[in-house]
Design a protein around this nucleic acid. Structure first.
Lengths: 248, 248
DNA sequence: ACTAATTTGCGTAACCTATAAACAGTTAAC
DNA sequence: GTTAACTGTTTATAGGTTACGCAAATTAGT
């Protein structure tokens, strides 16, 4: 009957100690499989990570992988947690503002270093040990901020999501070097944007100088704006709830 | 050699008038294909949207579709813009705060009505006419806010991204009715969370009462917190830049 | 106008991928 | 030893996509 929960993903994420093993010794280990996928993604992009290719790499039949992983999506979740192990921890001597900013930047930098990360179909990835350690770091920076755990969790979630978007923009910009990341967006606008159809948008954009190539509008860090906005929001929220930090 | 740009996606998104057609009259129209995909997704979920199934629906061979869309991903982009046509426009008599809140809520509500929306592999979807109209609405609410167009664009992007995450949470919660959306997250924590390994996280979570089922912690709107945070951030940014709204 | 070149729409065949199902060999527990 | 639990393989099916071929329609050349 196996009243097992819908997913053994969690034990697999955490390298569950194999229970009462009865059958033959496994020739493959999960770590080995994930590592093979990692190397493949790193060297040939995420598209090279097919079950067949991974199997070939570890020397087994493609279907053998399914004894260790429920399906390809699960392998990719494991892969994404594996990637989190590559995040370099910023200094712990930072205030929550600078700390979180560095925390975000490290993630964008990782995406720049491993662009295939953004090809992962993430959605609602359940964090594994490595990602959870990264979240723990965010909580470290927030340690002196007087907010309930659930709000901190929500904040970390929002920052993560923003970071992902920022990473996408920067990676795309880096790939089409010298080319504006909004190139296709701009082209679309100039070709089809109809002031009658999109009046508010066009009115606002009318005052926009599209930033000459090679020149950065604000600082040399285009993500500064979004980051600042989010940090400001957190600040405002903290101040607003400064007095009511008593229990209940 | 056809120095054609990498993508004819844009013309396709905008229902490009077919130029100097030379060959036989098309038996299929793009709109017809997208509509078939839309109906399939609506009735049987996104997994029912396979090239073969769509082709069957419009009465042609699977490969015929490739004369109208580059690949399945492009079909899905068209589909996602088609879905944006279903967004009901909130009242225009709202301040920017309330307007943007309603704008976000409408998107979450759409996701609740069409859960398959969240299965779309979106990433960096280039907006089509319908989505652009929706963005225009956001700019309408921001019309009296004195910020440069690029900052407004960044804000809208951040709100969109947050909304998507919020939608995911609410949809998941609605699917596992009565069940905590963080069920697996919580289970993972109680099983594996090690205070030595994740000290900051566990310290913060130690003061967390996991909210009894059926009870909502804050208001009956769990998204209030994130929305409030973002709106507060925007407010703070506006105030900070209140005086320097002059040109350059 | 008539033909030929060209361009376009669609189908067939073939390949790769993911994965379900059935199978076979292995080992520990009884 | 028998059995149950487990590992990996073989086989089969469905879906996405490329290569290619034929037919239709439009344009050019005469």
């Amino acid at each position: 009957m196996m009243g097992v929960m819908s997913s053994d993903l969690i034990p697999r994420l955490w390298g569950k100690p194999p229970a009462g093993r009865r059958g033959p010794k496994p020739a493959l280990s999960l770590a080995q499989i994930v590592e093979a996928a990692y190397v493949l993604a790193d060297e040939h992009g995420l598209s090279a990570v097919s079950m067949a290719r991974v199997a070939e790499e570890v020397g087994c039949s493609p279907m053998a992988l399914y004894r260790h992983v429920k399906n390809k999506d699960e392998l990719l979740i494991l892969l994404s947690d594996r990637l989190c192990a590559e995040l370099p921890e910023p200094s712990r001597d930072l205030g929550w503002r600078e700390g979180l900013a560095a925390w975000m930047r490290a993630q964008v930098d990782l995406a720049l270093r491993k662009p295939w990360f953004l090809d992962l179909p993430l959605a609602v990835t359940l964090p594994g040990p490595n990602r959870l350690a990264w979240i723990d770091l965010a909580f470290y920076y927030l340690r002196d901020v007087a907010l309930p755990a659930e709000e901190k969790l929500a904040i970390v979630g929002i920052l993560s999501q923003y970071t992902l978007g920022e990473a996408r923009i920067e990676v795309e910009a880096a790939l089409s070097e010298e080319d504006n990341p909004f190139a296709s967006f701009e082209q679309m606008l100039v070709t089809y944007a109809d002031p009658e159809r999109f009046p508010s948008l066009m009115a606002s954009l009318a005052t926009w100088s599209p930033a000459a190539p090679g020149e950065r509008s604000e600082a040399d860090n285009p993500s500064a704006f979004g980051q600042g906005l989010l940090i400001a929001g957190i600040e405002a929220h903290i101040e607003r709830h400064a007095g009511c930090s008593g229990p209940e």
